Amino acid sequence: MIDALKQLVVEKLDVNLSYDEFDQTTPLFEDGLAMDSIVFTEFVLLLEKTFNVEFEHDSLTFENFYNLEKVSQIIAKHSS
Score class of each variant (00 low, 15 high):
Met1Leu: 12
Met1Lys: 11
Asp3Val: 02
Asp3Gln: 10
Asp3Gly: 01
Ala4Trp: 00
Leu5Arg: 08
Lys6Trp: 00
Lys6Leu: 00
Val9Met: 08
Val10Asn: 03
Lys12Asp: 13
Lys12Met: 12
Leu13Arg: 06
Val15Asn: 07
Val15Met: 07
Val15Tyr: 12
Leu17Tyr: 14
Tyr19Val: 14
Glu21Trp: 00
Glu21Met: 07
Glu21Pro: 00
Phe22Cys: 05
Gln24Phe: 11
Thr25Lys: 15
Thr25Tyr: 14
Pro27Asp: 05
Glu30Lys: 15
Asp31Thr: 15
Gly32Glu: 03
Leu33Val: 13
Ala34Leu: 12
Met35Lys: 04
Ser37Asp: 09
Phe40Asp: 06
Phe40Ser: 12
Phe40Pro: 07
Thr41Met: 11
Glu42Phe: 04
Glu42His: 09
Phe43Lys: 06
Phe43Glu: 02
Val44Glu: 06
Leu45His: 07
Leu45Tyr: 08
Leu46Asp: 09
Leu46Cys: 14
Glu48Phe: 03
Glu48Val: 04
Lys49Ala: 15
Lys49Gly: 02
Phe51Tyr: 15
Asn52Ser: 15
Val53Lys: 08
Val53Gln: 08
Glu54Ser: 11
Phe55Tyr: 09
Phe55Met: 05
Glu56Thr: 10
Glu56Cys: 08
His57Ala: 14
His57Trp: 10
His57Gly: 12
Ser59Ala: 11
Ser59Asn: 11
Thr61Val: 10
Thr61Phe: 12
Phe65Asn: 02
Tyr66His: 14
Asn67Tyr: 04
Leu68Asp: 01
Glu69Ala: 10
Lys70Pro: 00
Lys70Met: 14
Ser72Tyr: 04
Ser72Thr: 06
Gln73Tyr: 09
Ile74Glu: 08
Ile74Ala: 02
Ile75Gln: 02
Ile75Asn: 02
Ala76Arg: 09
Ser80Phe: 09
